[in-house]
């Protein structure tokens, strides 16, 4: 920008042009913005390192093969067992139950809000959804334990009723917890689909339902996938509900009425107890933590791929 001034006749005194104050201030702003960006990167690297170092020590003592294929999880007992599969299984079961609740319901709620609801209904319901998304998870945990679990136990129709602690109740409530987030973000994606596409489909004789399912949902798919993955990531990482309602027993089963422990619940439970720093129990927490971290990282990478692939660019 500055170079241009030499070409043209200067109408104002040269001193004014040479003043460095502007650029000095600009430099400070750029510098501090860079520092903020750098800080977040440094922190992330720091956290990963803090996870990685004790984990590496752990895998020096316990073979990764035993860790990832073993079916017994009893790291804190005298006769310790380090097979993480029961925790992984627990995480999977609870997450699947939550997903089975929140994906279909979230999508339907989003379609209703974006395509069918009157503008007034939408402007009323959307903020409520966002408030629901802000309820502390410990509240959901006790809701599962003191409301959903008794409900299930009293009205159970087939086979053995669920125990006081069970994966089903935790998964259901987790699904309810994630539902507003999934619905709200999917709805944003659908609402952002240009009106001209709806008008175009309507002019071809599509019904409202056909417009919603064949034009709006596909056009907003990348945002909807992002909402789903965010929801599932939250389910995988959720601790409080499973800690309270699913019980603390590592249990390699896919029967949802049994008590289970998820990876997060183990971290939560073991972290509360006093593990001597540097002990094997202490390192176990980090090993499970980094496994969880890698899992969610892979999920996020997949979701970014999916979002790119299904991105339907309009405009």
């Amino acid at each position: 920008m500055a170079a241009v001034t030499t070409e043209r006749p200067v109408s104002r005194p040269l001193q004014g042009l040479e003043s460095g104050r502007r650029r000095y201030r600009e430099k400070i702003i750029v510098g501090s913005l860079f520092l903020c960006a750098a800080l977040s990167i440094v922190l992330t690297v720091g956290i990963v390192l803090a996870l990685l170092i004790p984990s590496l020590e752990f895998f020096g003592q316990v073979s990764p093969v035993e860790f990832f294929t073993g079916t017994e999880w009893a790291p804190l007992f005298k006769n310790s067992q380090f097979g993480v599969l029961p925790l992984l299984g627990g995480t999977l079961v609870v997450t699947l139950i939550a997903a089975a609740i929140c994906l279909p319901l979230g999508l339907l709620a989003a379609i209703y809000l974006s395509e069918y609801a009157a503008r007034r209904t939408r402007s009323f319901v959307k903020p409520i959804l966002e408030i629901l998304a802000g309820i502390p998870t410990v509240v959901y945990g006790f809701f599962a334990l003191t409301f959903i679990t008794p409900l299930l136990r009293e009205n159970w129709l087939f086979g053995t009723p669920p125990g006081v602690f069970n994966a089903l109740s935790a998964g259901l409530v987790m699904g309810i917890m994630i539902l507003p987030t999934v619905a709200s973000i999917s709805e944003d994606a659908m609402y952002a689909v240009p009106q001209s596409l709806r008008a175009g489909a309507a002019a071809l004789g599509a019904t409202k339902y056909e417009i919603s399912t064949r034009v709006v949902v596909p056009a907003g798919l990348s945002g909807i996938i992002a909402a789903f993955v965010l929801g599932i990531s939250r389910a995988v990482g959720e601790t409080m509900i499973v800690l309270i309602a699913a019980g603390g027993m590592p249990n390699l089963t896919f029967n949802p009425v049994e008590a289970m422990q998820t990876m997060t619940a183990f971290i939560g439970a073991a972290g509360l107890g006093d593990q001597a720093t540097g002990s094997i129990g202490y390192k176990t927490i980090f090993a499970v933590g980094i496994s969880l971290f890698v899992m969610t990282l892979i999920m996020n990478i997949i979701s970014i791929r999916l979002v790119r692939k299904y991105r339907e660019v309009y405009d």
């Binding site: 240009p194 001209s196 008008a199 175009g200 489909a201 002019a203 004789g205 596909p218």
Partner: peptide, 25 residues
């Protein structure tokens, strides 16, 4: 049928754009 001021193809393939109306019909 109607053609709009600003071209508004669906963000789908050329084929699916043309087939959309017949399919819903």
């Amino acid at each position: 049928g109607m053609v709009f001021q600003k071209p508004n193809p669906f963000p789908k393939s050329i084929y699916d754009n043309v087939a959309f109306g017949p399919r819903v019909g």
